[in-house]
């Protein structure tokens, strides 16, 4: 006998779907009230926004000469920051990897610290470091170092956890110690992924470092802030175009390198 499959009440009246819709709409209404959304104001002032865009559409090309030096500074900041962050991240990545460290305590504490570091947004770190070391690219390098430390350590320990056990066991059987196992069994397996992630983080840091200067942490952001506060939107446009060009070049460079690696 064929029977028509019965549906439970929850399925029949689409309880889950309706519930999700209601929750979502309530959240939407609540957050609109919280943030004071006023679409009429938005549409009535849209002209002002487009006037601003219009002024940005006529870039002040003369300003390009001024922009080149800080853009280069931005790249240098990103490079040093990423490198310092990576160097510090590597030992932490090994400590957090499940297949290398058996002690739950060590692993747990390491992962907890890494999670804490990762929650901090980049500009927040920049504001803190500007307060600590003073205005200038030094603050930017420190910010990016901490920022990339959090990101890279996670990417790295996830890579380390995917490696093959064979070489580790072979070395252990031959009597190698922990350091020797890491150097001869783990690193050769992960080095290509590590370099690829390093380049990826570098890309992200180049993007991030362009705004760090807004709070005084060096690089092109300083000029971004200067042009915006003096209402020279034609100069802002030049800066944004310069950032776009640099980001596209760095991205495609790092993409080509990464494709070759993997």
């Amino acid at each position: 006998m064929n029977e028509i499959p019965k549906r439970t009440i929850i399925q029949k009246y689409h309880v889950r779907g309706i519930l999700i819709t209601v929750i979502l709409s309530l959240l939407l209404i609540f957050s609109s009230i919280m943030t004071g959304v006023d679409w009429s104001e938005f549409f009535s002032n849209l002209g002002q926004f487009f006037a601003l865009l219009g002024r940005m559409a006529n870039p002040d090309w003369q300003y390009l000469n001024v922009v080149v030096q800080p853009i280069i500074e931005t790249i240098q900041m990103a490079l040093l920051g990423t490198t310092i962050g990576t160097a510090v991240a590597i030992p932490f990545a090994f400590l957090a990897a499940r297949n290398l460290v058996k002690s739950l305590l060590v692993r747990g504490v390491t992962r907890f610290v890494l999670n804490l570091v990762r929650t901090l947004p980049d500009l927040l770190l920049a504001a803190l470091f500007v307060a600590i070391v003073g205005i200038g690219p030094t603050a930017g390098v420190w910010t990016l170092a901490i920022f990339s430390f959090g990101m890279i350590s996670k990417l790295f320990y996830e890579t380390v956890e995917t490696i093959e056990k064979g070489p580790i066991e072979a070395l252990r059987a031959a009597g190698a110690n922990k350091i020797q196992i890491i150097v001869f069994a783990v690193i050769p397996q992960v080095i290509n992924n590590f370099i690829s992630y390093f380049l990826y983080t570098f890309e992200i840091n180049v993007r991030a470092s362009t705004v760090l200067g807004y709070l005084g942490a060096g690089g092109i952001g300083v000029f971004l802030q200067r042009s915006l506060s003096s209402f020279r939107y034609d100069q802002t446009a030049v800066i944004i175009i310069a950032i776009l060009i640099v980001v596209v070049i760095i991205d495609s460079l790092s993409n080509t390198l990464r494709e070759r690696l993997l």
């Binding site: 006023d38 104001e41 938005f42 002032n45 849209l46 002002q48 926004f49 601003l52 865009l53 500009l123 993007r207 362009t210 705004v211 807004y214 971004l224 915006l228 802002t236 944004i240 950032i243 776009l244 980001v247 596209v248």
Partner: peptide, 16 residues
Amino acid sequence: TFPELVLAIMFIKAVG
């Protein structure tokens, strides 16, 4: 690539 901060500043000009 358009920095989010710049976007925020532009919208502040428009809606306060």
